[in-house]
Design a binder for these strands. Structure first.
Lengths: 366, 366
DNA sequence: AACTATTGATAAATCGATTTTTCAGTGCTG
DNA sequence: CAGCACTGAAAAATCGATTTATCAATAGTT
């Protein structure tokens, strides 16, 4: 069993001693520098093998003055979107020989700033920041003030200091508008978090402009709460209590979709008979529930790929003005979207659930 | 704007120069060592302030030979369970002045081993490992072979080399059994992933033993697939196609619950009229869908807290035999569980959805 | 007054690597 | 054979901190 094996790990000097060469030579062998006598190289390899030597990447980075570490700062880890984002970023970093160190800001700008400082302390080579607010929040300021290399993603549109990559919210929302208006909806409630500045504004305006272009008489109600989800829930509840009866709800973010669904439950409304629902952000469960929930799928993999691509270009010294990329989304129209119900629903409904047994999803090609 | 500020960050020597003292003195001041003349301390503080000096934690750790880094290895980041786990671990590590570096093994033991080696290269102070398989997989072996300090969580029961912390699967499953048998179910399908060794076995046996104790004539069918989810889906589909008609399904893990739901959809079966469903692992959406889905809630926060507690004890040198903790789960009986339907359902059903508008959840106190 | 303790600070060693400089030996040329 | 370029390896400097050893100046003791 435990062979009393609290081995202090061998350093490059231990290897050098065993091989009867200098540490510098070991380093060269490890890096494949050709100016080493084959015989010595062989002895180094043997010593490495025997001792089980592996270089300490942090000690190595210390000397190089460029750490092979990429920092990622995300609002949370709990959602599929950010979870999947971390997975992608991790893979892309490792592909280039870097290690990803991810941290969650917990939707707090203070914590975001604190993490950024820590990333700077760690001298990370670059940072992928999904800001709590938007590109004009404290995060970007800090990164700029400290001369850090970074890319901003997700809740951003474009920035004068950093490259940005995000979903094409504007087009996606426009497509949602075409879908809802096309099906006859003329009174839509849009819910979202105002805190998430520019991004939410894009989603909202993309929807509003296209909807109004298709029918100027459309009525669009908007409920935006500043920071937290619970006030939003309260506002929505209040809105419905006042007797407002939109025929569809468009949620600008995932939690909003959940809140909307739970408020529908409270009132016994069913989708799409009593009200239609479509939300930004897809999730696995949305394709297996009754009804399946229509959603805008953000291209997580592409956002991650583009962000890392830009980031490493900057790390490698590329200059030039910041770029702003928008990646195309996909709207999955599922069962939660239908035509408006005939009369003003009262809170009852028919009791009928849709009993479709069609395949999985219905990709929507505009 | 950008004040050409590619500041090379000041080192402790820069501070020393500015303050007119030695680097050693600066280090002492930064650590609050009292044997420093107040006047000198003052000058150091001023220099630190002026230069914006912050110590490089990695350089500092290099000398101390104990890095203030905790590694976390999880099968994936995409689920609420592991996402939430990372968030908790992150907070608990930082509370003690450590940084959490999380990595995902992507349900692959090869990758798990690779990450462990990297963690070892990094000389992390300790590792929280949620193994892909169970405590007897390659991960534990590697940790032991390399004399690493670590704790195993989630898919484990107990180990002879490492402390373990996990949900009390046995009790939770027993409670599910009491609930289902109590409601009259006598034919239950249990689905899970066999790969996840000991843990799944505990969940399965906890269920089976209690169910059979309550009624020896109960019929329990089990579908366990080795590695991937898709073969499981195929097996379930095949099972139902053969005409098997259990009155309830108990899924031993989250994806199984999703697969079950989607297979119900395919056949047009509704919960709980046509079939009941309860799964291990809760998720936010389960309380807002129609029907709401019954689930075993794992105490993520407690598992994380206990794991970190044990880990830091070991890091601080505590010896003694490994401990094995089981944290109590909570069963949330929601609408997806009901009494068995009267006759053998055919694939039709009544078309009626439950229209409950009761509060949120129904915590179940055994 | 001579010697020892004490205090506060600096110089130097260290952590584990990389990189630059120096150096010894070899081969070639004139 | 002296002089020079070249090769391969060792020695030393470096990264940014901490820690140990050393030292100077002051205070205290007899």
């Amino acid at each position: 069993m435990s062979s009393g094996a609290v081995h202090k790990r061998p350093s490059i000097h231990d290897v050098a001693n065993h091989a009867g060469v200098s540490a510098a030579t070991v380093s060269k062998v490890m890096h494949g520098v050709p100016t080493v006598k084959p015989e010595n190289a062989q002895r180094v390899f043997e010593a490495v093998e025997r001792l089980g030597y592996r270089a300490d990447p942090l000690a190595s980075d210390l000397r190089r003055a460029k750490r092979r570490i990429i920092g990622a700062i995300l609002p949370e880890f709990e959602s599929e979107f950010f979870g999947s984002m971390v997975t992608h970023l991790e893979r892309l970093a490792e592909l280039r020989g870097y290690t990803l160190v991810a941290a969650s800001s917990g939707e707090s700008e203070e914590r975001e700033a604190e993490i950024l400082r820590r990333m700077q302390d760690w001298r990370v080579a670059g940072v992928v920041l999904a800001p709590v607010r938007d590109e004009h929040g404290r995060g970007g300021e800090l990164m700029q003030a400290h001369g850090m290399t970074g890319v901003m993603i997700d809740r951003v549109l474009s920035d004068k200091s950093f490259d940005t990559v995000s979903a094409d919210s504007l087009s996606a929302s426009a497509e949602v508008a075409r879908e809802l208006i096309g099906r006859g909806h003329r009174h839509v409630l849009v819910v979202g978090l105002g805190e998430q500045g520019a991004c939410v504004r894009a989603r909202l305006e993309g929807f509003r402009k296209t909807a109004e272009a298709l029918d100027p008489k459309v009525r669009i109600d908007v409920i935006l709460c500043e920071s937290d989800v619970e006030p939003l829930r309260a506002s929505i509840r209040d809105y419905f209590s006042r007797g407002e009866r939109p025929t569809a709800v468009f949620s600008l973010f995932l939690k909003g979709t959940l809140v909307a669904l739970s408020e529908f439950r409270r009132r016994g409304w069913h989708c799409p008979d009593d009200i239609s629902l479509v939300g930004f952000d897809d999730a696995e469960w949305m394709s297996v529930t009754w009804p399946t929930i229509a959603a805008v799928v953000q291209p997580v993999g592409q956002i991650a790929a583009q962000a890392m691509d830009m980031l490493f270009r900057r790390i490698d010294g590329e200059t030039g003005p910041p770029t702003a990329r928008l990646e195309r989304c996909q709207l999955l129209v599922r069962e939660s979207v239908g035509a408006p119900s005939s009369g003003p629903h009262s809170g009852g409904g028919t009791g009928q659930c849709p009993r479709l047994s069609e395949p999985e999803m219905t990709p929507h090609s505009a």
